[in-house]
Design a protein around this nucleic acid. Structure first.
Ligand SMILES: [Mn+2]
Ligand SMILES: [Mn+2]
Ligand SMILES: [Zn+2]
Ligand SMILES: [Zn+2]
Lengths: 140, 140
DNA sequence: AAACATTTGCAACATAGTTGCATTTTTGAT
DNA sequence: ATCAAAAATGCAACTATGTTGCAAATGTTT
């Protein structure tokens, strides 16, 4: 995946019907590399010299989100975080874990949680996100 | 509970070791009455004439939160929402449901979800919050 | 190359939340 | 009831996050 990541990203954008732009490629690469949810601010800082405008980052993430390539992760932070959708099913993202001591975030991609079936008459459940808190291996 | 709500709130504050103030009583009453998570803005608007300062609301909620009387609900909105902790166990809040059509929020207090047991060596899971999306009875 | 659609950067704005500090309220002890 | 200490409140100013409008730049299609 390391060699042909560029090709993979090209394919993702083409399939999604999105214009192939420098910023989309850059941000998708960052998300692949990070392997966990990133905020606008982290992306901006990591881009450094690339002089990415804040608004552009938000709009780029939104276009990737609308295309289904990216998910909003549901952390207990003030800022939204985005991650690749490649490790989520349509109905269920993997759980996210936040360490209450060091603040680190972990994607528990292999922790399968049951999706609740229909609740009461009339409720249709389409999507689930689970957020866990506790102590990470480094802090426990 | 309607008659002795005041007494109940007095008791809550006393047990928590918090000063008994007008604002704490007012906000706790609102949260009881609402039965679902409220944001600072909703509390301010509902207080109306009572002329509650924004900062005071935040600080009041924080004191109630630190005392464990109130939880932060984890909705996919920009602003934090707070609710009474009385329908949550220490480790697990009830799931919250947001309707993607009308935006309404529902507390699924009788939907019991299993708490994931320890994940990998080193992870200690202390708390779980689940957020569901779909269509509410009015919209489905 | 030309025409069209989308993306980008910038400035200005809106909303959520925080901090410092002087004043007021609550509490517990006299 | 009076007083002193501790905590809560209101206000102003501030930071951080996110949004909107628009002209210029870039990507796509023919
Ligand atoms: Mn993740
Ligand atoms: Mn609730
Ligand atoms: Zn940790
Ligand atoms: Zn609805």
């Amino acid at each position: 995946m390391s060699e042909n990541l560029d090709e993979h990203i090209d394919e993702m954008l083409k399939t999604a019907g999105l214009y192939h732009t420098e910023n989309r490629v850059l941000i998708l690469k960052m998300l692949f590399k990070a392997g966990k949810p990133l905020s606008q601010e982290k992306i901006a800082r990591q881009a450094g010299t690339n002089n990415l405008d804040k608004v552009t980052i938000y709009r780029t993430l939104e276009s990737l989100f609308n295309a289904g390539l990216v998910h909003k992760a549901f952390l207990n932070k003030r800022a939204s975080h985005y991650e690749l959708a490649h490790r989520c099913t349509k109905k269920q993202c993997h759980p996210h874990f936040t360490c209450t001591k060091c603040g680190s975030t972990h994607c528990l991609v292999d922790l399968a949680l049951p999706m609740p079936v229909s609740y009461h008459k009339g409720f249709i459940i389409n999507h689930q996100q689970v957020h866990l808190e506790g102590l990470c291996p480094a802090c426990s």
